[in-house]
Design a protein around this nucleic acid. Sequence first.
RNA 1: GCCCCGGUAGCUCAGCUGGAUAGAGCAACGGAUUUCUAAUCCGUAGGUCACAGGUUCAAAUCCUGUCCGGGGUACCA
Length: 540
Amino acid sequence: MKLKQLMNDFLRDYLKENDIKFEDWSINVSNQDSFGDYSSNIALKLTKQLEESPIKIANSIANHKNNSSKIFTISASKPGFINFHISNDYYLKALDQILKEGENFGRKKELNKSANVEFVSCNPTGPLTVGHGRQAILGDMVSNILTWNGYNVTREYYYNDAGKQMRVLAESCYAKYAQQIGKEIDMPEDGYIGTYLDEIALKIVERHGKNLKSNDPIFRDFTEKEIFSDIKNTLESIGIKFDVFSKEGTFYKNGAINDILKKFQEKGLSYKKDGAVWFKTSGLGKKEDKVLVKSSGEPTYRLPDIAYHADKIDRGFDLIVDIFGADHIDTYPDVLLGLKSLDKKTSHIKVVIHQFVTIKKGGEIVKMSTRKANFITLNELKSQLSSDIIRYFFIMRGANSHLDFDLDLAKDESEKNPVYYLQYANARISNLLIRYDKEISDERKIDLSLLKENDEIALAKLLSEFPNKMEEVLKSLEPRKIATYLEEVAAAYHKFYGNHKIINLQNLALSASRKKLCEATKIILKNGLSILGISAPERM
RNA sequence: GCCCCGGUAGCUCAGCUGGAUAGAGCAACGGAUUUCUAAUCCGUAGGUCACAGGUUCAAAUCCUGUCCGGGGUACCA
């Protein structure tokens, strides 16, 4: 960050000295060594305004007085780029800082800001599927990213304990119960037919006998409890814990839903038609109006969702993140509209939408349908794969892309599996450090300037970028970017390791410096992996 | 019908706040000192960035349209 500032300062200084008013330039990482470390397009952008050829402007800029000459030199190249060449010294100094700050390197201090991350939030009508798994892991990592950047994070799970789905679940469970005790009863329409319900029904028979009536609350309460505890166990097995569980029923009981209806009515934003209450979204930029309360008297999901979000806003979080599956893409704008019309602040709500997951097995896509009990559960996945692998594979693609979960690759314990690539780099370093201490007991002042090889500088440069990366990730809330970065770090380390001897009894000073580079790499790998919630084994 | 996401190497995908010769992993092929852990490294080959227009000094990236794939779309959530 400091580095970019210095480069920008240099450009600003040039503009000021030449009395040019201009702001629209960028500085990017160069894509070729001969173009230095960073490049700016400022001269190209200035061509029109100055009515000069870009290369002329670039040369003029490159010759401008450089107050940061110890940190970088400047050159101009072909069409008109300004190239900044950063001194090795700058990157090596970053190593000192990494070693000094250790597990806090790149971490933001307490911001005194709070964030709420809502994710998973599925109703307890069945076991979690791999689709929920993606959301769970995405949400957990987003939470970690926020924590790392200084937020005080609340992980929240919201579910509907009162609606139609739970009623159907109870009816389905009764039907299964009836089957267990030898009665033939038809499954309710759109009922849940998964085998997990058979197990629950059997438990009910065992514990409560065979004489329960269909309307016994046990069929709802017991089932909810059973399924929920299964969900919690599943989540825990991949390292996820929630701080708060919110129930939809709360907002009926405390009157929030009626209040909102009343306010909409007062503001003229709702009306009655065909026995239902409609939300006049057409006046707010939408094409059609939406139903708030069905003619049956039951609210649609929108109303409680608005109430729930209003509640989150009122709890005073500085940032509210909603992680939703692609099925919400059309519906969350309604909720935001509702909140806005209630004069609630919504600018601090960030919605992360992720696409769905397909499982690839033996080169073929396994089609899934949740209702028809034709799905792969997260538990099944967990029984075959470690938490580390599951976590990594779910964020290997951007949230906005469909995810093909390649089961065969995930199970593969060879070098093909990218998770091991990262972990192996860490294990390699750990082993090396142990060996180093055995062979070299020499204590000396470290002279990092002995690190001059391209592989060494490239690695140091990459390590120094970690804090910037974390800031980027805070903006995009894309854990994948951390994974990509760590793969680069591991690759740079493996390359350095392959080309250069670290423990060299003939050159203890150089050995000591290289050891420091290894230690710094280990810190970065560990810090990055910890945000992803993936272990960094010392030995493999 | 309408909405969202995607179309980049044989496969899976990066890159997309516009920038200099489009990258990685896997697969293919060829190599690496009796290893500081070879779960590694080096090299070769592989591309009309779906297509057509447009904006621009500059387009894989922005705009428009078309085609293909996936998903959503209700008084279900």
